[in-house]
């Protein structure tokens, strides 16, 4: 037994030991922690979070929409991508998130959608294409009663008029039914 310092641990040795034990503990704990990411403990501290998968899909469909706004909207509607999509499609737009809302944005993994994949929401709808705005108010029963019987006319002009009428009736009938369904479900 010569120098007493040789028998005890010096500072670098203690540091190495600490690092090793830290890694060992982490290694032991990790497999148990991983199967439950975003478990109740985590969401309790972080609050509701936007599901990144939903954020990614919506961003791909609407590259012009701000990702922060998408996340904010998803957080506020309980992660229901249907509601966010609907808001974007109907052109109502998303609310501007407050300054304090600074989520981790998705980058890299999301490929930038090319122009051909982007769906533009412009262009006239069928009501505009067929100039039907004036006929929207017409009563349902009346439309049913007037329903044009399909028949072949030998007169060119009459044929065209009948065809146009059948097109209009089809669009108006579908619109009416859709409105009724909307009313019934809301």
């Amino acid at each position: 037994m010569a120098d007493p310092t040789e028998a005890t641990l010096n500072i670098p040795q203690i540091a190495v030991l600490l690092v090793i034990s830290f890694l060992a503990i982490r290694w032991v704990l990790a497999p148990r922690a991983e199967p439950a990411p975003g478990s109740s403990a985590r969401s309790a501290t972080d609050g509701p979070r936007a599901n990144p998968q939903h954020v990614e899909t919506i961003s791909q469909m609407f590259p012009q929409a701000d990702q922060r706004a998408i996340m904010w909207d998803l957080m506020r509607n309980n992660n229901n991508p249907a509601i966010t999509t609907e808001r974007l499609i109907t052109g109502r737009g998303l609310a501007t998130p407050p300054q304090s809302f600074q989520p981790v944005l998705l980058t890299g993994s999301t490929p930038t959608p090319s122009a051909s994949r982007v769906l533009d929401k412009s262009g006239p709808d069928l009501i505009q294409r067929y100039n039907l705005s004036a006929k929207l108010a017409e009563q349902a029963e009346q439309e049913e009663a007037d329903k044009t019987k399909p028949k072949w006319s030998t007169n060119k002009t009459e044929r065209q008029t009948l065809l146009q009428k059948r097109r209009e009736e089809m669009i108006l009938a579908a619109r009416r039914k859709m409105l009724e369904k909307e009313k019934a479900s809301s």
Binding site: T85, L126, Q128, A174, R175, M178
Partner: peptide
């Protein structure tokens, strides 16, 4: 949902 939203838009609903 997307399909339905497009349909509604086409009919101006």
């Amino acid at each position: 949902t997307t399909v339905k939203a497009y349909m509604k838009q086409a009919l101006g609903v």
